[in-house]
Write a protein that binds this DNA or RNA. Sequence first.
DNA 1: CTGAAAGCGCTAACAC
DNA 2: GTGTTAGCGCTTTCAG
Lengths: 337, 337
Amino acid sequence: MTIKDVAAYCGVSVSTVSRVLNNHPDVSDEVRKKVRKAVTELHYTPNSTARDLARTQADSIGLVVRGISNPFFTPIIRTIEHGCETAGYTMVLHQVGTADDEVTAARELVQSKRLNGVIFLGGRYDYTKREMAGLNVPYVCCTYTNHFGNLDRASYSSVAIDDKREAERAVSFLVSKGHTQIAMLLDNPQDHSISQRRYGGYCKALREAGIAENPKLVLEASDFSFASSYQVVKDFISSKHPAFTAIFAVADTMAIAAIKALYDAGIRVPDDVSVIAIDGIEVSNYLTPSLTTLCQPQERLGEEAVRILVDVMEGRAGNRHIRLETTPRLGGTVRSL
Amino acid sequence: MTIKDVAAYCGVSVSTVSRVLNNHPDVSDEVRKKVRKAVTELHYTPNSTARDLARTQADSIGLVVRGISNPFFTPIIRTIEHGCETAGYTMVLHQVGTADDEVTAARELVQSKRLNGVIFLGGRYDYTKREMAGLNVPYVCCTYTNHFGNLDRASYSSVAIDDKREAERAVSFLVSKGHTQIAMLLDNPQDHSISQRRYGGYCKALREAGIAENPKLVLEASDFSFASSYQVVKDFISSKHPAFTAIFAVADTMAIAAIKALYDAGIRVPDDVSVIAIDGIEVSNYLTPSLTTLCQPQERLGEEAVRILVDVMEGRAGNRHIRLETTPRLGGTVRSL
DNA sequence: CTGAAAGCGCTAACAC
DNA sequence: GTGTTAGCGCTTTCAG
């Protein structure tokens, strides 16, 4: 069943059918109606592969996600898909493992699928001009930005929170509740990534409060997984360690695992130790007690990413960099000392 | 940058380049090497759109997911993607909203992208022969099966747990712990879906234990979301209701929300009320206490789905129906009476 | 072993 | 308004 069959079926040429399919104006109402009828009767669905090939552009946006199973991303992905559809683009989702490089993946995807633009969801903070040069389409970094790279601000877009500032806020909140011995749980501070930025905020908050930073209170998990954070916290509390009354985790998932590790060791949250995080994933609101965290505006992160990208792709605007704010969610995992 | 450029660059014909690209044997080592070199030097990436069009088949498998943000699905999706890749197929992910029909979506996807087969992840239990007729490729239902439809068993495949039996197991477990007043939390029992099957198991377990079923202990949420379950349980306990000592939830997510609702009402789990569920998503193991649940073999569900589908697609085997068993995870949310 | 050429199904000039 | 036709970039017979 091809466009030819439809054309033959209603005695017109393929171009006429094509015009109807693509809503071109110059077709008589009569013919248009006839073709539409044939399409439904024949259950004809256009072959998008052929269409994409014939058109110079595929009208599609690549979404390159690093860690699709990260619950923080799921609402964002949904929003982005919806936004793409509304704007008339197909979203092509591509997941990259922690080991793979998202830029290489994106470059191949763009070449191979003729994408009009790409959105990176989660990624490195240190892209270089050189490596991004091959990506000949506009792109926006969603949930992060190029803090440690050498990209021109005008060459790409980004939508994210201000990691450093929000981390500072979280830690200052703990300080305001009387905490001074504050541990930090992060994944890998020297990888030029989110943890490093948030670690900066942690240090700044301590400094401004006149609290000396204690390196022994910095707990490094190997990634964002529950298992890894659980293990790190478990090892920490079962070893000789400095006293601490609070933990600041760089992600809700890590906080959840930390609370569990504390609980399993007989340490109660918030009675014995307070916990605060950044992210605001849905499930953390359903813990008992709810996790105290700074919620990222997940929907808006996705919406803005699409909006900016489409604007740039269609030449309506230049690249932009948007910083959104978090909204504190006062759960029950922080207590005043 | 097309295959022509590569051909011109190394002074051979496009067909030779194509042969090298597709690892056809009949190319001299010398030419092969030269072409390979050119490909890397030119940073050439084949246009998959053109390739798919030229080939009669696209070597790709559609994964039609109903509710991509369902945390129960994420490990399965990952496994399926990996399995497809290993088998030499590209996975095309397509998410359908709760309102859309997955079969229509799949049919269009197949026609439009020339898919070789499709995997449905979550879906209705009542497909009819008629509606599936348009889907001219093999398909497998992953995590569910056609219990309420009229499909020939030989016309499709399925990989799932035995919902009824597992639900029975969960409820029998509660009974064995001395519970007799057992509530059930489900989403929509009359939609010919998972809840209905598990509800059947609940009834059977009660019957076999000689416990009269009390309709007032059946709590219906409007969907699987946290919010909906939370609300239902909250309304239930704040209204005039029969006494109950345990809740069986059809999904971990619903159980998590239920526990929260109980907690917020001052009811403790497991001290006052026990909770058991089916699914075994990762986060439920990190609650305090861990959720007692029957874990579905998520990885295996995905692996088997791909294996069966590929076997059918490549003519190595016929359709099959596999029932896998759950593994109980004894958390801390059930206590003996 | 290698090249020429005919499509894959559709779009978009370009004629009429 | 409608039809004809030349590609889009690649694969794949079919010759040589």
